[in-house]
Nucleic acid binder design. Structure first.
Lengths: 204, 204
DNA sequence: AATAACTTTGACAAGATGTAAGAGATGACT
DNA sequence: AGTCATCTCTTACATCTTGTCAAAGTTATT
């Protein structure tokens, strides 16, 4: 997947590229509209050097997002998605992903802000979707979930609800203690989980 | 709500303001990154005139979004949200809103793209949320829905799922015939609807 | 019809993106 | 180690966009 970027570059070039990506991640997360001049400065480099590595501001943003996506995917894969009940695995994965993306709150706005192309954006989210689909399908095979809704829809809806919980929590409209229960209950319902649902939030 | 904008303006000023808003809606929907010069030209006006009516590009975008929001709210109110089963009313409202917002596909990206301020954005969505909350609460009182999840969360989740269905449909991953059933089933599950659920999508 | 206030415009300043040609560093080969 | 071809970085430039201001042009009122 990362075939066109790393190609026999010289040592200083690799250093610059890494510094630019790191600086871009840090600076853009603090100020989404930061200029390339600012980013270049934070990377200890002049602005045209950025253009030597990324053809446009847009492409730099995409590279930053890819970086974060890779990080999130790694965290999700480390959450043992193939062991235990599917519902638990799903929540572990979502939580692992949210913990990474939660460190870059502003950057996530930018990915939805710059819809390069409808298909490219979908391709970008594909690795995440694939992992969630895998767990959902396992839950279906084991009978944990029913199969009355299309899998791809459930994948999309699961991701959306995961983001929704994060945002509601960030906005202070959902407490950190209630959030996991709310997400669990919501997902179990959506996925058509069999009655033996886990810890439900106690009604008040 | 619309108190600070219309205030004894002169005739030409009202005409210009309306022309600018109309042009901005049309042009930005076709090309989100269009310059103010382009928008002004499409409105038959020069660029500084735009600044005479809107203090910045940002504020113009917000005005455009407010315009669309008002339109969507009117459509939702016209969908008889207070009559019939709450589930049906909810779906009518969501469909009415989606029909309006579906006419401005690109503009919707911009509202999430330009998070003016967390609270201002929430206030902007409030009128829509209020109407959905009203229907959900009615369904709870009548026993159609259960009350094991926080109302505000269900409101947020409902809006998200509505958007998700629209996007999946636009992306061609959900057929126009299947979409309504998918949304209905998903919402009924999420809201904890009593067993007598309406038309479920036939499993294949 | 004259005037006071509002609206629109032309001209200007500041800042950002992207480009090209030359200066500078790096690694290979002798 | 020294030389050199090549890749990398930078200085300078051209273009576009946003935002501002004072002056010209309209509108409504007396």
């Amino acid at each position: 997947m990362t075939f066109s970027s790393a190609r026999n570059r010289r040592a200083d070039a690799r250093r610059s590229r890494a510094a630019i990506l790191e600086a871009a991640t840090r600076v853009l997360n603090a100020e989404p509209d930061a200029s390339l001049e600012t980013i270049a400065g934070a990377a200890g480099v002049t602005r045209p050097t950025v253009y030597a590595h990324f053809p446009s501001r847009e492409q730099l943003l995409l590279a930053v997002v890819d970086r974060i996506t890779d990080e999130a995917i790694a965290a999700m894969d480390a959450a043992d998605p193939d062991t235990g009940p599917a519902a638990d695995a799903l929540l572990r994965m979502l939580d692992a992903g949210a913990q990474v993306t939660g460190r870059y709150p502003v950057l996530l706005q930018l990915i939805s802000a710059h819809p390069v192309s409808p298909e490219a954006d979908h391709d970008r989210h594909t690795p995440v979707a694939d992992r969630i689909r895998r767990v959902i399908q396992r839950g279906r095979r084991t009978g944990e979930f029913d199969d009355r809704l299309p899998v791809d829809w459930l994948v999309a809806a699961t991701i959306r609800l995961g983001h929704a919980v994060s945002e509601e929590q960030d906005a202070g409209r959902l407490s950190a203690t209630a959030a996991p229960d709310v997400l669990r209950t919501s997902l179990l319902r959506l996925l058509g989980a069999t009655a033996r649902a886990g810890s439900a939030p106690r009604p008040r």
